[in-house]
Nucleic acid binder design. Structure first.
Lengths: 142, 142
DNA sequence: CTAATTCCTATCTGTTTACTCGGATTTATA
DNA sequence: TATAAATCCGAGTAAACAGATAGGAATTAG
């Protein structure tokens, strides 16, 4: 039941961008260094996030990445869906286009997976990048 | 964010055993056939469930497996923990013995993973095998 | 004694993950 | 305009893992 590094690293990177929201674009290299991630690998994740419309990029010297919306308007769910695909612990209980096996209609375990999925969705859709930034500020104060 | 077949198949098997609770032991072969699972593979899962104390076995002809407690006293969480290990989407946010990286104390994303984990835990610990049986009865009636 | 069954351990194969690399393109600035 | 700093793009790879298979020993009801 583990998340891949896509989701893990991706949220770190998005949080990093959120902390710098409003300033100049942030380079891949600096994000990778701060967050302890392989730069080359992160590059691929940013491409996915860009395609999903969560970040935009500026090429060339002094270029980098920016959030394409305010931190308050990007949820953890947005990030995870972009990187990990539709939410769900099993293919027959994905939030979108569940893959129906032969036993689909009579399957009781499926109902369990759907309940778990819904609790995950409720949580990830309720946390924004801004929430995370505020949480971070609380920490450094104390 | 996918569950392995351990958890998937394991819960199916446990549900199957719950449906037959109170009767003679159920053979691996019959569970595998009803649930559409490889018999040999299921064997390994049952060994894990047995070691975890969730089922007991009777060897020899006409032997098989039985729940070691009443369906009302076994939760989905019990089954998943036995088969998948401590709950958590990332190693630094496991419910038991989280693996602390260097950034552990200052890591904000970790807090997110913990919230998701807690919502999963709340759900899986609130559903028992009996609940699943009742759900199944509802379905066949309608 | 026989057939049915669990128990135990080992092995295999395909897929996925996480990462690396090389080079093309863009662009701010000196 | 030259240069360095970036993003962009596609390919390749090693290790880990999932899922399954197999063979044979031990147990037991009939």
């Amino acid at each position: 039941m583990k998340l891949s590094t896509k989701g893990r690293y991706g949220l770190k990177a998005m949080y990093d961008l959120a902390l710098h929201y409003g300033n100049e674009p942030i380079s891949l290299k600096s994000i990778a260094q701060r967050q302890g991630i392989s730069e080359y690998y992160l590059e691929q994740l940013m491409a996915i996030l860009k395609k999903a419309g969560l970040v935009r990029s500026i090429r060339g010297a002094y270029g980098g990445y920016l959030l394409s919306r305010k931190p308050s308007e990007i949820t953890v769910g947005d990030v995870l869906r972009a990187l990990e695909g539709p939410i769900g612990l099993v293919d027959c209980a994905l939030e979108q286009e569940p893959i129906k096996c032969l036993r689909y209609d009579n399957c009781i375990t499926r109902i369990v997976w759907e309940k778990i999925r819904d609790s995950i969705i409720k949580t990830i859709d309720s946390i924004t990048l801004l929430d995370m930034c505020n949480e971070g500020r609380k920490k450094t104060k104390s």
